[in-house]
Simulated scan of single mutants.
Amino acid sequence: MTVTLPPKYDAVEFAVLDDPYPGYRRLREAGPLCRGGPAQWVVTRYADVAPLVGDDRLGAEFDREYHRIALGDGPLADFFGHVMLNRDPPAHTVLRRLLGPEFTTPAVRRRRRRIDALVADLLAPVADGGRFDAVTVLADRLPIRVLAEFVGLEAEDIDAVRPRARTLSQAFATYLAQSERAATVEALVWMRELVSARFEARGSAAGDDLISRLRQVDPAVAGRQALIDNVVFLLFAGFATTTDLLSNGCAALAAHPGQMAILRDDPGLVPRAVEELLRFDAPVQVKSRLVHRPVEIGGRMIRPGRVLVLHLGSANHDEARFERPGELDVTRHPNPHLSFGGGGIHLCLGAALARAEAASVFTFLARRFASMEPAGPAVRRHTPNFRSYLSVPLLVHPS
Rank of each mutant, 00 (worst) to 15 (best):
P7T: 14
V12K: 03
L17E: 15
D19E: 15
R26L: 15
R26I: 07
R28I: 07
E29V: 00
C34W: 10
R35F: 08
T44V: 00
R45Y: 12
V49G: 04
A50C: 05
D55K: 06
D56M: 08
R57A: 02
L58Q: 03
L58C: 09
L58H: 04
G59Y: 13
R64V: 15
H67C: 04
H67Q: 12
P75I: 08
G81D: 05
M84P: 12
P89F: 11
P89T: 07
A91M: 01
T93Q: 14
E102I: 02
L123D: 13
G129P: 12
G129T: 15
G129S: 04
G130P: 03
D133H: 04
A139S: 03
R141A: 13
V146L: 07
E154N: 02
D159A: 10
A160S: 15
P163H: 01
E180V: 06
T184G: 01
T184M: 09
V185F: 14
A187R: 14
M191W: 08
E193V: 12
R198P: 04
E200T: 10
G203K: 14
S204P: 06
A205M: 07
I211L: 07
S212L: 10
R215D: 08
Q216D: 05
D218W: 10
D218M: 10
D218N: 12
A220K: 13
R224D: 01
L227S: 11
D229I: 11
D229H: 06
V232G: 05
L234N: 05
A237D: 06
G238Q: 02
T241D: 06
A254S: 14
A255S: 11
Q259T: 04
L269V: 01
P271E: 02
E276P: 09
L277S: 03
L278N: 02
F280T: 05
F280A: 00
F280N: 08
D281Q: 15
S288E: 12
S288G: 02
S288Y: 10
E296A: 09
I297W: 02
M301R: 13
I302Y: 09
P304A: 04
G305P: 12
G305W: 10
R306D: 13
V307T: 15
V309A: 12
A315K: 12
N316M: 05
F322L: 07
F322E: 01
F322P: 01
R324Q: 02
R332Q: 00
P334G: 06
P336R: 00
H337A: 03
G341N: 08
L349N: 03
A354I: 01
A354H: 03
R355N: 00
L365P: 10
M372P: 09
G376I: 09
P384V: 15
S388D: 04
L394T: 14
L394M: 11
